[in-house]
């Protein structure tokens, strides 16, 4: 797919979703809004994962984006949701840029565990901060968009549209990036980092930049979530939250950015309906669903339509 085609397809998809949104019931609008804002965090994981690393601490940047946006609202009185989202994204990107170089020298599971440790320290600090509500967190009133307060059915749709557009644009940017020379370098690192080093590229700097991109996406997702949810609490940084982001990324597979959003939506729908129809065994239903996907779609949901074309990856450098 050439870049122009990609952008056109993405624009078409977003326009279609905006139209469909007009016909959706409100509960589903909200569910899609949250699925999109969580999905974009998983897109960030995908960016790192292409380099062969998995972060189990994306909850950290998710929480940073969320708290930065939420506090800008309650403490600074900034109510415009677009500004809030930009603040959240920027705050998380800054943290990502600071921590990224430090994390870039870690490999495999240790990278995952260090990110997990960092997010859990942040979780602990948040729980011990009564100024931001401690473990109960705090509420954020509904924001404004171009001076109009987002409430009622119209507000729900506006948030839905915003989520579709913001995450859609960010995801398209990521898709374009992965097709750039630097983006392809990440795949090469996954194949064999040492070879890439010998070719004169710094693996650490590529990974640090990837981490920063992922952090920005995490912050974006966090800010978007609190704007829609109206609440934030330390569990944003808890390991189960980070684990869920990884889960969605794995379910989607690394073939397609769109698949991440579909996986995220599927997870929310399965959870919501199983919670209602099997209130005693919804975790079991969720677990079985996840197992089934991993078993029957080994390359992820994305392989349903994007799989075969890239079945013979250029990164055939797995051999020792």
């Amino acid at each position: 797919m050439s870049r122009t085609v990609l952008v056109l397809v993405a624009a078409g998809l977003m326009a279609a979703l905006l139209l469909i949104g007009l016909a959706l019931p409100r509960w589903l609008l909200f569910l899609v809004t949250l699925a999109a804002s969580h999905g974009i965090v998983s897109v960030g994981i995908l960016v790192i994962m292409r380099g062969g690393l998995v972060s189990f601490g994306q909850g950290l940047v998710f929480a940073i984006g969320g708290y930065a946006a939420a506090l800008s609202f309650t403490q600074l009185g900034i109510t415009d949701v677009i500004v809030l989202i930009l603040i959240g994204t920027a705050a998380a990107a800054l943290v990502g840029a600071a921590v990224g170089p430090l994390l870039a020298r870690y490999t495999g599971i240790f990278f995952g565990m260090l990110t997990l440790a960092l997010s859990m320290v942040a979780y602990g600090v948040l729980i011990k901060s009564p100024a931001v509500g401690g473990s109960d967190g705090f509420n954020i009133p509904r924001g404004t968009l171009f001076g109009v307060r987002l409430e009622g059915a119209g507000g729900d749709y506006a948030l839905y549209a915003l989520a579709i557009l913001v995450t859609g644009i960010a995801a398209t940017a990521v898709a374009l990036h992965t097709r750039s020379a630097r983006g392809l370098m990440t795949r090469a690192i996954h194949g064999n980092g040492l070879r890439v080093e010998y070719l004169g590229t710094s693996v650490q700097s590529v990974m640090a930049i990837n981490f920063t991109i992922a952090a920005a996406l995490g912050g974006l997702g966090g800010a978007l979530t609190i704007v829609a949810l109206g609440h934030i609490e330390p569990t944003f940084a808890f390991w189960t939250q980070s684990g869920e982001f990884v889960f969605v990324a794995i379910l989607a597979g690394s073939h397609s950015v769109t698949a991440v959003f579909i996986a995220s939506l599927a997870l929310e729908l399965v959870r919501s309906f199983s919670n209602l129809y099997f209130p005693n065994t919804w975790q079991m239903a969720l677990g079985l669903f996840l197992l089934a996907i991993i078993l029957f779609l080994p390359a992820g949901i994305g392989s349903l339509w994007a799989g075969r074309r890239k079945a013979s990856p250029s990164s055939g450098g797995e051999t020792p």
């Binding site: 975790q283 677990g287 197992l291």
Partner: peptide, 8 residues
């Protein structure tokens, strides 16, 4: 996933 299943 197994953890979720065993939990229930």
């Amino acid at each position: 996933a197994l953890f979720l299943i065993l939990e229930d």
